[in-house]
Design a protein around this nucleic acid. Structure first.
Length: 723
DNA sequence: GACCTGCTGCGGGCTG
C-alpha cells in the first residue's frame, strides 16, 4: 500500500484514513501509480462497486492539489450516462473533496439553473455532466468553452462499455475531440468500465489515434461461486387442473424468492407487468405483505425511486421484476438471486445482470433461468419443435461460463449522428466552412469512415432548399438554415437518440408513467400498469394524457420495440447444442425432455447433411448458421428476388412467390457474386433521429455500414450450399 | 423478436 499511498496528496491521504481503510484495492494502487507516474490514457475495468471511482479520482484530485494547471476552468471533468449516477457520484466525491476544498458540481437536466450559473461564473473543481448537457454547453456557450475548460487536467468517462459504438458514444467521442481542439491541447482520458471480453475496441474508442498506448488496469477475476438452474415450462397445455406456464413460473418465483432481495429480468415491459401482477395477487391471496414490484422505463420516476429505495433497504425484502433498467447504473446493493425469464439477447447483458448477485464475501451468485416453450401438436412449426428459445438460453449460459461476451460492433458510418454534429459545430462557432467541419469531425473526430465525397453528399442533402438545415453565405461560410435554426434552438436537439411518442398515464392528478401512442385505447378499457389494474376514463389526444382509475381486472399494454440482434457466435453455439449430445447438469427434467425433442427434430430435418431442406414444393428451411445481421441480409436479398421470407435464430423459412425461380438457383447466383439491389425488398431505412434529412442513397450507405452486409453474401451463400 | 439513456432559457408568480 505504501508506495501508492505515498503518492497521494495530504488531504486525500487524510480522507482515506478517516474511512478506516486498511489497504487500497489492487486496481486502486495500480491506477494511482499509472496516473501519478505517466501521462497515459487509462481504462480501469472492474465490476460494479469495485472501487473504480476512487481508483481514478484519488490520484487525479491529488494532482490537482499538488500540480494545478495554469489558467481558469474546471480542473476535472466526469461524464456519466445517467442522471442518477451523476447524483450518486457527486455525493461520493464530495466526501473526498471537502477535505481538499475542491468544489464538486453535478450538472444535468434536474440540477437547478442557479448552481449552473454560479459554476460557469468561476469554473473550478470537478464537473460531473451528461453527454447531452455537455452538448448543450457547446451549442449555447460555444465561445466560452476554451475559458470553462482551460485548466482541465483529465476527463473521466464512467460506464464506458455502455456507450461504445452507440449513437451516444459517437456523440461523446466527437465532443471530446472538439473540447481538445477548443483548448488546443490533449486532455488525459480515463475510462471506467465493466470487464469486457475484448478490451482492444474499448481502447480504440477511448483514444482513436493511439489505442495501443492506452493503459489497461483490470481487476483480477476473484469471481463468486456460481449456482445455476435452467427450468423448462410448456405453455399452451393448460386446462382446468394444470396452471399456465406463466402461473407456474410466478408460483415458483413466489416460493423461492420471497423473504430476500432479488431481481427478475422478464425481458419485455409487457412481461414485467404480467409477472408483477401475478406475484402481487399471490401475496394478496396468502395475506402476506407486498414485496414484488415492477420496474421499467415507462413507469414514473416516483415509483422507480420507491422500488430502488426498497432494494437498498436491507430491512425490507424486495424483489423487482424488471427490464434492463436495473442492469446498470446506481448501486442497489447485493441481491440474493437473479432470475431470467426467457432467453436473453446477449451474453454481455446476462453477465452484467449476474454481477448484481453474489457480491458479498462467501455468497454464491445465483442464476435461475426459466425457458418457456410451446406445447407440441401435429400442427407445430419447426421453430417450436427446435425449441429455439431453450437452445439459445443453453448456448448463452455455455458462452457465459466460457467467459466470452459480445465485443462492441465495428464502426458504422453513423450518418444520423454526423448530421447532428455538423449542426452543433456550426452553432458552436456561429458558422464554419465545410473544410473546417470536415477536419473537426471526420479527420480528428470519430467519423473517420466518412470520405470527403460522402461528407459532401451529406452537406448537399441537409442544405437542399426543401430540407433547409444549413445554407451557405456569400463568403462560403456554412450557417444554419431556417429549419436548422428551429431544430437547434429547441432543447430536444441535444440528445442524438430517437424516442417514441407517448401518452402520460394519470391517476388523481399523479403521473403513473407513459404508454406508446400506438396502443389503441378507449374509455372503459381495462389495463394492467405499474403492477396494478386500471380502467381508462378519459383520453386527451392533444395533451397526450390518459386518465385512469383503479379497477378489478385488466390486460397489459403493448410497448413495442426493435428486433434483437444476436451475435454470430451465439448462433454457432446454438448449432453446437443442437448437434451435440451433452446433457447440461443445471437443467431440470422438463428442460431435458425439451432438449431431446429439439435434437430429435433437428436430426429428422437432416440439417447435418444439408443446410437447405424442402417442405413441400414451394417452401424451404435454410439453416444459415449466422447471427442477425448476416441472416437478415440474406433474407432481404431473397425478398428482393420475390420470395416470402420469415426469419428465426440462424434459420430462414422461404416461400416461393408466383414467379420466383428455383431457390437453389438463386443461392448459386448469389454465391457467384451479388449484383442485385438489396433494397428492392423494401426495407425501412429511417431508423435514427436525423435520418429523415438524408437522401435515399445516403440512407442505403448508412444501413450497409451498420445493419447489413451485402458484400458477404457470396461467401455466406457458398457456405450454406456447401453442406 | 427488446431494452435503455437525455434536455435550455425565459417569463410569470410568489416569498422574504
Amino acid at each position: 500500500m505504501s508506495s501508492a499511498f505515498d503518492k497521494l496528496a495530504r488531504p486525500v491521504q487524510k480522507w482515506i484514513r478517516q474511512q478506516g481503510w486498511r489497504e487500497l484495492r489492487d486496481i486502486q494502487a495500480r491506477s494511482i501509480r499509472t496516473i501519478c507516474e505517466t501521462n497515459a490514457d487509462l481504462i480501469v475495468a472492474a465490476s460494479t462497486a469495485g472501487g473504480k471511482t476512487e481508483a481514478a479520482f484519488l490520484p487525479l484530485i491529488s494532482q490537482v492539489l499538488d500540480e494545478p494547471f495554469d489558467g481558469i476552468g474546471f480542473d476535472l471533468l466526469y461524464i456519466g450516462p445517467l442522471k442518477a449516477l451523476i447524483t450518486d457520484q457527486a455525493m461520493r466525491l464530495e466526501g473526498i473533496c471537502q477535505e481538499a476544498e475542491l468544489p464538486v458540481i453535478p450538472w444535468h437536466g434536474d440540477v437547478s439553473q442557479s448552481i449552473k450559473t454560479r459554476a460557469l461564473k468561476s469554473p473550478k473543481g470537478i464537473l460531473l455532466i451528461t453527454p447531452e448537457s455537455l452538448e448543450a454547453l457547446f451549442i449555447r456557450r460555444g465561445l466560452e468553452i476554451a475559458r470553462v475548460f482551460g485548466a482541465t487536467q483529465a476527463v473521466v468517462i464512467d460506464e464506458l462499455h455502455t456507450v461504445l459504438d452507440s449513437e451516444r458514444g459517437v456523440q461523446l467521442c466527437s465532443l471530446l475531440t472538439r473540447l481538445e481542439l477548443a483548448i488546443k491541447r490533449p486532455i488525459r482520458r480515463i475510462g471506467l468500465s465493466a470487464t469486457l471480453g475484448d478490451m482492444d475496441l474499448a481502447k480504440a474508442y477511448l483514444r482513436p489515434d493511439a489505442a495501443s498506448s492506452v493503459q489497461l488496469i483490470e481487476a483480477d477475476g476473484g469471481e463468486a461461486e456460481l449456482r445455476l438452474q435452467l427450468r423448462g415450462y410448456v405453455s399452451g397445455d393448460e386446462d382446468e387442473n394444470s396452471p399456465s406456464a406463466t402461473d407456474a413460473i410466478a408460483a415458483h418465483l413466489f416460493k423461492h424468492l420471497r423473504g430476500s432481495d432479488n431481481l427478475v429480468f422478464a425481458g419485455a415491459r409487457q412481461r414485467v407487468e404480467i409477472y408483477a401482477d401475478r406475484l402481487r395477487e399471490l401475496c394478496e391471496r396468502e395475506h402476506l405483505p407486498q414485496e414484488f414490484y415492477p420496474h421499467h422505463a415507462s413507469l414514473s420516476r416516483e415509483h422507480r425511486d420507491f422500488v430502488e429505495r426498497r432494494l437498498k433497504d436491507v430491512a425490507k425484502p424486495t424483489t423487482a421484476v424488471c427490464t434492463s433498467t436495473l442492469e446498470l447504473g446506481i448501486d442497489i446493493g447485493d441481491v440474493t438471486c437473479v432470475a431470467q425469464i426467457g432467453a436473453p439477447f446477449n451474453v454481455a447483458a446476462l453477465r452484467q445482470r449476474l454481477g448484481r448477485s453474489g457480491r458479498r464475501e462467501g455468497q454464491p451468485a445465483i442464476l435461475r433461468q426459466y425457458a418457456v416453450e410451446a406445447k407440441l401438436t401435429s400442427e407445430s412449426s419447426f421453430v417450436d419443435r427446435l425449441r429455439l428459445g431453450l437452445i439459445r438460453s443453453i448456448a448463452m449460459i455455455d458462452l457465459l461460463l466460457e467467459g466470452w461476451c459480445e465485443p462492441p460492433k465495428p464502426e458504422a458510418l453513423h450518418l444520423s449522428t454526423l448530421v447532428h454534429q455538423i449542426l452543433s459545430v456550426i452553432a458552436q462557432r456561429g458558422g464554419a466552412s465545410a473544410n473546417v467541419i470536415y477536419n473537426v469531425l471526420c479527420r480528428e473526430g470519430p467519423f473517420r469512415q466518412v470520405t470527403t465525397e460522402v461528407f459532401a453528399n451529406v452537406l448537399r442533402a441537409i442544405g437542399h432548399p426543401e430540407t433547409d438545415l444549413i445554407e451557405q453565405s456569400g463568403s462560403g461560410l456554412l450557417l444554419l438554415g431556417k429549419t436548422g435554426e428551429r431544430l437547434v434552438e429547441h432543447y430536444s436537439f441535444y440528445a442524438v437518440f430517437q424516442t417514441p411518442e407517448e401518452f402520460r398515464l394519470v391517476v388523481d392528478g399523479r403521473d403513473l408513467g407513459t404508454l406508446p401512442v400506438d396502443n389503441v385505447l378507449a374509455p372503459g378499457m381495462l389495463l394492467i400498469f405499474s403492477g396494478r389494474r386500471w380502467v381508462v376514463q378519459e383520453i386527451h389526444d392533444l395533451e397526450k394524457v390518459i386518465v385512469v382509475k383503479p379497477a378489478k381486472a385488466g390486460v397489459p399494454p403493448v410497448f413495442g420495440g426493435d428486433p434483437g440482434d444476436i451475435h454470430d457466435k451465439v448462433i454457432e453455439q446454438m448449432f453446437a447444442v443442437l448437434e451435440g449430445d451433452f446433457k447440461p447438469v443445471y437443467m431440470d427434467a422438463v428442460a431435458h425432455t425439451m432438449l431431446e425433442e429439439a435434437r430429435a427434430h433437428y436430426d429428422q430435418l437432416e440439417f447435418q447433411a444439408n443446410n437447405i431442406r424442402s417442405l413441400g414444393e414451394h417452401t424451404w428451411i435454410i439453416a444459415t448458421r449466422f447471427g442477425t445481421v448476416k441472416t437478415s441480409t440474406l433474407a432481404l436479398a431473397l425478398r428482393s428476388e420475390g420470395f416470402l421470407v420469415e426469419q428465426h435464430d440462424g434459420f430462414l423459412v422461404v416461400e416461393a412467390g408466383d414467379e420466383t425461380p428455383d431457390l437453389r438457383m438463386v443461392l448459386a447466383r448469389l454465391s457467384a457474386g451479388y449484383t442485385g439491389d438489396i433494397f428492392a425488398g423494401a426495407e425501412n431505412l429511417i431508423t435514427e433521429k436525423f435520418h429523415v434529412y438524408l437522401s435515399r442513397p445516403l440512407l442505403e450507405l448508412d444501413a450497409v455500414s451498420s445493419r447489413l452486409v451485402p458484400g458477404l453474401l457470396p461467401g455466406m451463400t457458398s457456405r450454406i450450399l456447401q453442406v
